[in-house]
Simulated assay, not measured.
Amino acid sequence: MIPLSVVQALSARRYAPLGRLGVQEIAVLRVDTARRADDPERDWIGFAATLTPDDLLKALRGWWRCDAASVAAGGVLPVTLSGYVVAVLTGLERWEKNTEGRHAFPEARLTGYVTDLATPKITIASTADSDRQLAELLLGTRLTSHSGGAIAYVPTNATAH
């Protein structure tokens, strides 16, 4: 059971201030809770605050059906779990495409992540000022996105409610 106070705190959480990003649209990576991966490159897929930063980055990197140029143009990839930003990835300038038409961003950096969503407590994983600012702006906020896949696209000039 989740305590009522936690549910109330989450429902009152502010929405991500996307208008401050300076781009028209960003991609959002929508994930589930971490589970064991059957993959030689990584042990986990998804998000868990208990993973080490290296394991978390590997768990969040993947091959997605997406418009890679649009993902890169946004400059940031917020990672959401149930509509809350739990991690932020940057370093999306270069991508690769596999034979199935999926894209990966091999130089993606884990900028920051949430270790406790209810409070929220965040960990900044990057030393770059621009990365730190993005993480502080987005982590723990609400970010609504709709998509049939892992990647959704959200306009930044509209308030997400």
Rank of each mutant, 00 (worst) to 15 (best):
129 D>V: 10
128 A>V: 15
107 E>A: 11
105 F>A: 10
114 V>R: 00
109 R>H: 09
122 I>P: 02
98 N>Y: 07
109 R>V: 09
99 T>M: 15
114 V>T: 05
126 S>L: 01
104 A>I: 05
129 D>L: 04
112 G>F: 02
119 T>S: 12
110 L>I: 03
120 P>M: 11
101 G>R: 04
127 T>L: 14
97 K>G: 11
119 T>G: 06
114 V>L: 00
115 T>D: 02
117 L>Q: 09
111 T>C: 03
105 F>T: 10
121 K>N: 07
123 T>W: 00
112 G>A: 01
117 L>D: 10
130 S>W: 02
114 V>N: 00
100 E>N: 10
117 L>W: 03
117 L>F: 10
97 K>Y: 01
118 A>S: 07
120 P>S: 11
103 H>G: 13
101 G>Q: 10
97 K>A: 14
116 D>Q: 10
129 D>N: 07
130 S>Q: 10
102 R>S: 14
127 T>I: 13
105 F>V: 06
119 T>K: 14
122 I>N: 09
106 P>A: 01
116 D>Y: 13
124 I>D: 04
121 K>I: 08
124 I>C: 04
97 K>L: 08
124 I>Y: 05
121 K>D: 07
126 S>I: 00
107 E>F: 04
111 T>M: 08
121 K>G: 05
103 H>T: 12
105 F>W: 06
111 T>A: 03
99 T>V: 15
117 L>C: 04
113 Y>S: 13
129 D>F: 11
104 A>H: 10
100 E>D: 09
124 I>T: 12
121 K>F: 04
109 R>W: 04
125 A>P: 13
98 N>F: 01
121 K>E: 10
119 T>R: 11
104 A>N: 12
102 R>E: 14
103 H>P: 15
102 R>G: 10
113 Y>C: 15
99 T>K: 12
123 T>H: 01
125 A>T: 15
126 S>R: 01
119 T>A: 15
126 S>P: 04
116 D>T: 04
115 T>A: 04
127 T>K: 15
102 R>N: 14
128 A>H: 14
102 R>A: 15
101 G>H: 06
116 D>E: 09
98 N>S: 13
98 N>C: 06
106 P>R: 00
129 D>Y: 07
102 R>L: 14
126 S>D: 07
117 L>G: 11
112 G>N: 05
100 E>P: 03
108 A>G: 08
101 G>C: 09
103 H>R: 05
106 P>T: 02
118 A>D: 03
122 I>T: 05
106 P>H: 02
127 T>N: 15
